[in-house]
Amino acid sequence: MAHYQPPAQGKASQLIDVIVLVVLTVGALFVPIWLRMAGASKSVTAPVANPTWESLNQNAAQAAKYEALGFTPESAHDLILSRFDYSFSIGALVTMIAVILLYYFLILRFSEVEYREVISEKFGE
């Protein structure tokens, strides 16, 4: 294989490449947060009026620990009763699996093409 001679990259072009990467990175990580679509938020589905340790399903040992940490039944109410919702749709699960498989298929295929060039130039045909 003929030796590939890469073009020289100017400083402005290098700077643009860095900016593109940083913008994409910050976007990928912060856009879900800004759109409030990020993370599993917990919620209290069955609040208890005038809570006591008993009504919050805490035995004597558990209540003693909360009190040692400075909590009262009122201040510990949301902390104790908040729960995640693990329900999901099959469609969303299939979409996630498809996106992951597409991603690995893409990079493995393109990598193989590039790798053959590397080996060919390094070791000769």
């Binding site: 976007g27 679509m37 990020a38 999901f88």
Partner: peptide
């Protein structure tokens, strides 16, 4: 995926 599916898809979208 159980709770952070949006980040997962966003991040893989970024890598694509």
């Amino acid at each position: 995926f159980l709770g952070y599916g949006t980040q997962l898809v966003a991040m893989i979208g970024f890598y694509i």
